[in-house]
Design a protein around this nucleic acid. Structure first.
Lengths: 238, 238
DNA sequence: CGAGTCGTTGATTCTTTTCAAAGCCCGTGG
DNA sequence: CCACGGGCTTTGAAAAGAATCAACGACTCG
């Protein structure tokens, strides 16, 4: 789950991997023993409208969650990384679709069993509540980004969020692998592929990032990226 | 809380007032006995960054929840109506600001007491989980609207959502009072006041709505509004 | 090696924003 | 009671940012 908050430094993220591990220690057998689900690149985990029979937790890979309009316009509402839960919520049906963007392994949590366990075990309930709360915060952060930031600021936000995730996971915060295509980024940031591409080259020409490959960003000027993302001057600062 | 879903007819909203009443029956004295908080028009309930000491539930009035960028750009993430909870979530500090847009009365739920009660009482916990889940759904719906819909489609969505709320509350679904200003609508839909105003007049000229006053919309062609909101043809259908 | 997908770049168009100004509503006070 | 003032809304004209249309290049995989 990508948190697109205004001030990343204020946002003391909880380590999702740790919480996932905690959960594992407490969950009962029905949940612990479920077989993992493997989905191939571009394969769907579920579609909007499908009944919620399982909640998933990403073990490996990346999944994009999205909603669409009738004419095909698509809004990616989140990228789910290892540790993230997919499909949490109180309704009967999924309200968005989930598609793997790389080869992915998921652990499957039967929804009714999970809720039953959560009902009896406040710890588990609290885990889910926290996870949901994090997702709400991420969604609202993205809303601010998509609603108010310029194209450059939006891309800066995304790169910063991915960098933060890397740091949290103990990998290099300056080297960012992009598992998603430009089209995915475009639909996440509510831009077009062309604008995303142009914005990448603009950041590259400004020496703020390097593009070793189109799917590997190296941050050269972290501070500049933060300034852009903060939104002090509508992205005109460079 | 305004749900901006693609298909309002699929979205069987739970009656919030009822759930609020249920909750009331179970909450312990510390929570039930708190004095209501009265806030005047344009007064803030809390600001982003404030420590969360209370969760609020709107009893009367309307509150807008928003996030801002450093240069003042504002994104309203939700309008909270009677029955809605404000400030739910797992963190220590509020991640958005809350400002009354009309004279408002709130019931105050001390955060720690509430969580303690929820911890011991799965019913309460589930209420909060559901409320949070609804807010997440609303946020993602708004994200789709802001990210993918045209100005006309966005306004259509808002009017439809308000109409649905009226129906749910047993009032006239065709007559919509707008407690918020054009600026509030603009910041909710990520548009400018001018665009909002122009879009209102366009809908009026198309005989889809009437504007008795600037703050009172009468829906004349509900179907047309639904078509616009559905997003089949990028709002070019009229 | 060729087909196809993905990414980049260029030219043009268009929706929305920005800048500017006038109208309207409403409360206040003379 | 009506004039005045200020905020909110509407409308117009011009500008800008991003979208669209179009083409080319790069990389991948049968």
């Amino acid at each position: 789950m990508l948190a697109m908050t205004l001030s990343p430094e204020i946002d003391a993220r909880r380590p999702h991997f740790d919480t996932a591990a905690e959960t594992e220690g407490v969950l009962d057998n029905r949940i612990r023993r479920t077989a993992p689900k493997v989905v191939h690149e571009r394969e769907h985990v579920f579609f909007e409208g499908d009944p919620i029979d399982h909640i998933y937790q990403v073990e490996k890979g990346t999944v994009c969650l999205y909603k669409t309009l009738l004419d095909g316009r698509r809004q990616i509402i989140d990228f789910a990384y290892p540790g993230d839960f997919i499909g949490l919520g109180a309704g009967d049906d999924h309200v968005f679709s989930a598609q793997a963007i790389t080869a992915t392994r998921l652990r499957c949590l039967p929804a009714n069993a999970l809720h039953e366990v959560a009902w009896r075990n406040p710890d588990i309930g609290m885990q889910l509540y926290r996870a949901l709360s994090d997702q709400l915060r991420a969604a609202r952060g993205l809303l601010l980004t998509v609603g108010q930031r310029t194209a450059t600021e939006r891309l800066a936000m995304l790169l910063l969020a991915l960098s933060q995730r890397n740091k949290r996971d103990g990998t290099d915060g300056a080297r960012i692998a992009l598992p998603m295509t430009r089209a995915d980024i475009a639909d996440f940031l509510s831009l077009t592929v062309e604008t995303v591409s142009r914005t990448f080259t603009k950041l590259r020409q400004s020496k703020i990032i390097d593009l070793a490959q189109s799917s590997l960003v190296v941050i050269r000027d972290y501070h500049a990226l933060e300034q852009l993302a903060a939104g002090e001057t509508k992205g005109k600062a460079f």
